[in-house]
Design a protein around this nucleic acid. Structure first.
Lengths: 160, 160
DNA sequence: TGGAAATAAGACAGTTTTTGTCCGCTTTTG
DNA sequence: CAAAAGCGGACAAAAACTGTCTTATTTCCA
């Protein structure tokens, strides 16, 4: 139940790009040094981000990476799923055929609900939000300072 | 970003106990057969649950495990944390000293928020809820009910 | 009282995931 | 052309996950 280092590095790396301003091309080496992330690892992560279209890569001498969208249009869910793959609390939520409880799994509903909440938080927080929160204290007690509106309960349930 | 097999097995195993009625002593072997969970693995998991006080073990001939509380008083958060340890999206949320961003980590707030949501869902769902078919314990916040998402939802879950 | 039944505890092993590293390749600029 | 940068894949160490096995220890009851 963790966000991996790779996912964390990805967000931090993009945050670094976002701080330079939109369109700016930044080298892996700079991001690596600035955020203290192993360069080769970060390179791999940015390849994923490039494949996902979040970032544009330019090769050659004056190459590097740049954001393809405004920081306000890049959610942390975009980033994390680009790197770690789709968030899935259980296999059955990704591939229903894998669930052994064909007659109605008692847990799928629970896990689905938890998963929805997490995706909700991540999808409501963009790079721009994180930039604005930069002055905020390191370890908030609650969810203070984040754009998580408590009114946002996803209450559309579906028949199936 | 997954609930482990062990955690899932734990909930299923306790659900099995809950179905037998409170106070009933059930053997690992029965639960194992009924839920199709490897016996030795399940034994380990129940040891964790016993250490956490969720379940009482009796050794010897007529031994087995029994719930120490009513199913309505055992949350899935209790169970999962007993087995997997505390839910922590990032190391810094468990041990703030580990966070390298001393001047204010841009991510701790985000992760803390997501983590709170997950723990909220799990802490609002008890064994009794799962027995009833997945509805959650009442909560003033009236937060998200069960599955929102797409085709992954099993057939029996309906709007609550 | 002894044997059978049941959990307790810990060592061990196979697999997968995570976290990187490395190297040869291609692309781009000057 | 040479240097600089990312691309892609192979590789590897470490950790986590998923079990299995063995040896206690406890308890019941014939």
């Amino acid at each position: 139940m963790q966000v991996t280092r790779a996912g964390e590095y990805g967000v931090l790396g993009l945050l670094c790009l976002a701080r330079r301003g939109p369109g700016q091309v930044v080298m892996i080496d700079d991001v690596s040094r600035e955020e203290k992330i192993p360069k080769s690892f970060l390179a791999k992560i940015f390849q994923s981000l490039a494949r996902a279209g979040i970032v544009k890569s330019s090769r050659g001498v004056r190459g590097g990476f740049s954001l393809t969208r405004q920081p306000g249009d890049i959610t942390t869910l975009d980033i994390i799923e680009a790197i770690e793959g789709p968030i899935a609390f259980q296999r059955c939520l990704q591939a229903p055929t894998d669930c052994p409880h064909t007659g109605g799994c008692p847990l799928c509903g629970l896990f689905s609900s938890a998963q929805t909440q997490v995706k909700d938080v991540f999808s409501r927080t963009t790079l721009a939000d994180l930039l604005r929160g930069g002055s905020q204290r390191g370890h908030p007690k609650g969810a203070a300072g984040l754009p998580v509106s408590d009114a946002a309960a996803p209450t559309e349930f579906q028949r199936v």
